[in-house]
Nucleic acid binder design. Structure first.
Length: 289
DNA sequence: ATGGCTGAGTTGCTCAGA
């Protein structure tokens, strides 16, 4: 099963990049952020294109800002928009999280608040929002959960092109990193960093001043997988191709491939009748209920 | 030189992003 997350920075503007990318990478589950569309506008724009590719869609959007979605062609159950009734919002509730169960995995697509500056109310909101996210993941059970999205925190200094350039800025402050560490302490693995220890791997590059072409970026889009999901990771990488060329988002997608679950929804793997085990009448394989 | 792009609505400008 292939999971992906992508901050598209306006799904309307990104249509000419998103649809070919879906056809090329063929992800089974896609978490989108910064869709910047109300749900009815999203459906009017993309509903048929996505249905034609076999995707069911869970939306939590609003006009102009924020907005998250999950696309799945392996099932989409128990959809929950947001982080609960008393989730923090500043200045009002914002569309920043949506969850669904896809092939037995509890998937949450998140767009963590930016925080703007460390002395701002937006920053305090960011920390409160992260605490609410942690509560929701804890309640769902972390082992079969995966949180994917624009976390808006660089986990460590190696996740920014120049730590000196970020002193005093959001995304790198100790309280933000502590909030991320508390989330991970539920048992979530940063699967891209675990796959590429010590490597220079970024997911975001400012549009300005040729930052992408100089590879001056940050790693702020993460896939945080619970123990059972993390144990199935076969590949985890950042799709830099999608940041190149005409009309890209300023974020690149992150793609994670999982082995089939031991008790996956695809059913047990049984040999065909002509297989040696069947002909020999060897040990019976476990049967599905 | 806190700018440099890009996107959206309050458009011919402002705000936000990170």
């Amino acid at each position: 099963m292939r999971l992906a997350t992508w901050n598209v920075n306006s799904v309307k503007q990104r249509m000419p990049r998103l649809l070919p990318w879906l056809d090329e990478r063929r992800p089974d589950v896609v978490c989108l952020q910064e869709t910047k569309l109300a749900d009815d506008a999203f459906t009017a724009l993309l509903g048929e294109e996505l249905a034609g590719r076999g995707y069911e869609v869970a939306l939590h959007g609003e006009a102009a800002w924020n907005g998250v979605a999950i696309l799945s062609r392996v099932g989409l159950d128990d959809v929950v928009a947001g982080l609960g009734d008393d989730a923090p919002g500043f200045p009002h509730p914002e569309a920043r999280a949506v969850s669904a169960t896809c092939a037995g995995v509890r998937v949450t697509s998140v767009y963590v608040p930016n925080g703007r500056t460390p002395d701002s109310e937006h920053y305090r909101y960011k920390l409160a929002w992260l605490a609410a996210l942690r509560e929701q993941v804890a309640a769902a059970g972390s082992a079969t959960s995966v949180v994917l999205g624009d976390i808006n925190i660089a986990p460590a200094d190696e996740d920014v092109f120049d730590p000196e350039a970020y002193v005093g800025q959001t995304h790198v402050t100790p309280p933000e990193r502590a909030a991320l560490a508390e989330l991970e302490a539920l048992g979530l693995h940063d699967v891209v960093r675990e796959r590429w220890p010590g490597e220079r791997v970024f997911t975001y590059w400012d549009y300005r001043a040729g930052m992408f072409h100089q590879d001056l970026g940050m790693r702020i889009d993460l896939v945080l997988a619970g123990d059972e999901v993390a144990a199935r990771v076969r590949a985890a990488w950042i799709d830099r191709q999608a940041r190149k060329g005409k009309g890209p988002s300023d974020h690149a997608p992150v793609i994670v491939d999982l082995d089939e679950a031991p008790d996956g929804d695809i059913g047990p793997v049984v040999p065909p009748p002509s297989a040696p085990a069947a002909r020999r009448g060897a040990k019976k394989l476990p049967q599905a209920p």
